[in-house]
């Protein structure tokens, strides 16, 4: 079975370049603006779109993404509305892969089977669930694979060679390498360490490896993308969004452009990188 993710990475490989992967929170700052932002991303240069599912207690996220989730929840965002957002995006775009990223509890409460069926119908291609390590694969990973969704696993600097095979075993779509030990938005990725880590992961898998956490500027994006199959930027985009809001945290006329402009400049950085060696 081939998903939009597989197709997209195959195309990029032919073009000889790495993917630019964006992350924003669904419903931030409100559901309607959030849909318009997501719709603007492919044109601005996003190759793969990650959409955060808001959660009250995001234990792996830094202050920026925590605040984005709370803004979305305050604006009435729910998991059902997140799936509606993807559905809305799919009306105009049937090619750009959509990955939902978040924590397990809202999915568990929604009901795993119902969630997978509804996500597939809405046009979701993959899932990244931060608090589901391979030890809990029965919960969602195996059912997701059966439902035809990619389950994208995080590998981290603490995932050593002994553990990597377990982490990669049921991973599909791509591998998300977390470039630092820490929460989102903290620290800066070191390009030498990242290149060694990506090479190490590639010894264990043929899947594309994307790198995230700690990438904020077009320069870092370029340098990271030259060592990997993709670079993920989240906090910097969320911060650009937040800076465009009014004092009450509501969207302004500048909000969509603020995100699109930063996306375009980061995408240019990634496109300037040479393709990762396969």
């Amino acid at each position: 079975m081939t998903t939009r993710i597989d197709t997209r990475f195959a195309e990029l490989k032919k073009q000889g370049r790495s993917a630019f992967v964006t992350f924003l929170m669904a419903g931030d700052p409100d559901p309607a603006t959030s849909l318009e932002i997501v719709k603007a991303l492919p044109k601005a240069g996003a190759d793969v779109i990650e959409i955060g599912m808001p959660f009250t207690d995001p234990m792996a996220d830094g202050p920026s993404i925590q605040a984005a989730g709370l803004r979305a929840l305050k604006a009435g965002m729910t998991l059902k509305k997140t799936l509606e957002l993807v559905h809305g995006f799919r009306k105009d775009d049937n090619a750009t892969p959509i990955v939902l990223m978040g924590y397990y509890n809202p999915i568990y409460i929604y009901g795993v089977d119902k969630f997978l069926a509804d996500a597939k119908t809405a046009g979701v291609d993959g899932l990244i669930i931060v608090d589901l390590p391979p030890e809990e694969d029965d919960e969602l990973c195996l059912p997701a694979m059966k439902a035809g969704l990619n389950f994208i696993r995080l590998a981290t600097p603490t995932t050593d060679d002994k553990r990597l095979p377990a982490v990669l075993a049921n991973t599909s779509g791509f591998v998300y390498y977390v470039s630092i030990t820490g929460i989102t938005g903290a620290g800066a990725a070191d390009s030498t360490a990242v290149s060694e880590a990506v090479a190490r992961i590639k010894r264990h898998t043929k899947l594309p490896v994307c790198v995230g956490f700690g990438i904020r500027t077009p320069e870092t994006a370029r340098s990271i993308a030259s060592h990997a199959n993709g670079a993920v930027v989240g906090t910097a985009l969320v911060d650009a969004l937040r800076s465009s809001l009014d004092a009450e945290g509501r969207a302004t006329g500048k909000t969509i452009n603020a995100v699109a402009e930063l996306t375009a400049s980061l995408a240019e950085g990634v496109r300037g990188a040479r393709a990762a060696a396969e």
Binding site: P133, E136, A155, T181
Partner: peptide
């Protein structure tokens, strides 16, 4: 139910 970083 923890992040991969903590699992090891």
């Amino acid at each position: 139910f923890v992040a991969e970083t903590l699992m090891p």
